[in-house]
Structure formats: C-alpha cells, structure tokens
C-alpha cells in the first residue's frame, strides 16, 4: 500500500487522521477529509494502537464508555505491573550485571503485542474494551521503557559502558524482532486476512 507521511501537518493530505486523531466517538464527523486516491494508513490500523477511539456502544453514553476504558486499562496495568514486579522478585537484578529480567520482560511483552494486535485488529472484531485491557493495560503495564533507560544509565555510571551499550542495543533489537516475528507468525498461522466488512472499525 502506498504511504504518504505528512510532516507538513496538512490535514487534507492524510484522510486517516480523522480516524486516528482519536476524537470522541460521538463527535461530529471530521470536516472534509477527501476520500481521494491519496494512499494513507489503513484507518483500521493506525500507527498508534490507542489512536482510534473505541467505537461507541449504543448501550452506554460516551462518558460511561470512557470511564470503562480507563478502568480496564488501570486493572490491566495493575496485573501487568504485578507480573513484572513478580519477575524482578524471582530473578533479582545484580547491579553491574546485564539486566536479564527486564530484558526478558520487555521482549516477551513485545512478542505478545505483535500477536495480540494482529488478532485484534486484523482478524476479530473484539469488544471495545478487549484491546485497552490486554494491550494498553496488561502489556503496557508489564513492559517498561523507563526501567530500561535507568538500568542502562546505572551501568554507565557503574563503569560498565560496554554492558550498557550491549543492553540498550540488544533490548531494542530483540524487542523489534519479537514484535515483528510474532506478528508475521500470527498472520502465517491464521491464514489470509479476511475481507473487511463495510463500515468496519
């Protein structure tokens, strides 16, 4: 699919933004985004997995829907953070050593994200709270970027610049390999992507 990045900020250049800006589901339709031939990101799959707001649920007004989304993200985040914290208790970090526990937490979380996003955005039409709970909540709370950066800083500070650089590069490479590989493997296992229903997303 052709893709046009839009650094100029011209809203008319990228029709998917009306979807991806995450306006309230019950807000009026975004003005005049021409559905022209300009290639754009698939509106169902924006770059940011949280960009598209959960579709409105007629049974619940918008405020309630937003509160439910925040609630399931908080609960998922607590579960994910508990799993990460449990891992650091099982395999405590030795200062100066390669931070294997955080490394594996992040790599396994990225692999799970690759699998989850293919299943949820390309194969299923899940309940609107499933993705916030599993992706934003559990996996977002489980993985951590701040601990990664601070562990690397500690290695530099402790006179282990080689280990710090190795840790920074190895986590990035393994995380990208994990998310890419898991997404590809999931697509392979689940077979061709079904045609999208009209008016989906």
């Amino acid at each position: 699919m052709p893709f046009r990045s839009n650094p100029s900020g011209d809203p008319s250049g990228d029709p998917s933004r009306s979807e991806a800006t995450g306006l309230a589901p019950d807000a009026p339709a975004a003005p005049a985004a021409p559905a022209g031939p300009v290639g754009a990101l698939d509106p169902v799959d924006p770059i940011d997995p949280d960009a598209a707001p959960p579709p409105p649920d007629p049974a619940h007004p918008h405020r309630t829907q937003q509160a439910r989304t925040l609630l399931v993200i908080a609960l998922g985040g607590a579960l994910g953070a508990s799993a990460r914290y449990g891992a650091t208790l099982l395999w405590p970090y030795t200062p100066g050593a390669f931070p294997w526990t955080t490394f594996w937490v992040n790599v396994t979380g990225c692999a799970a994200m690759g699998l989850l996003m293919v299943v949820l955005t390309e194969r299923l039409r899940p309940h609107p709270l499933v993705r916030p709970f599993l992706g934003t909540g559990i996996l977002g709370g489980y993985t951590t970027f701040s601990t990664y950066a601070l562990d690397a800083r500690g290695l530099f500070d402790g006179g282990r610049p080689g280990t710090a650089l190795l840790y920074l590069a190895a986590t990035l490479a393994a995380a990208m390999a994990a998310v890419t590989g898991a997404a590809a493997l999931t697509r392979l296992v689940l077979g061709p992507r079904p045609a999208r229903a009209e008016g989906g997303a």
Binding site: G140, S146, A175
Partner: peptide, 23 residues
Amino acid sequence: PGFCAALSTYSTFSYETLRLAES
C-alpha cells in the same frame, strides 16, 4: 516499579515502530 514503569511502555513503542516500518 508502580507508577513510572507502568506509565512507560516498551510493547507499544515497539509495535508503533513496526507499524511505521510496515507502512
């Protein structure tokens, strides 16, 4: 490990990077 670690995310970071590359 509570607030800051849960505020940050590696999984969304890696997935968004993948989506940019795929696009």
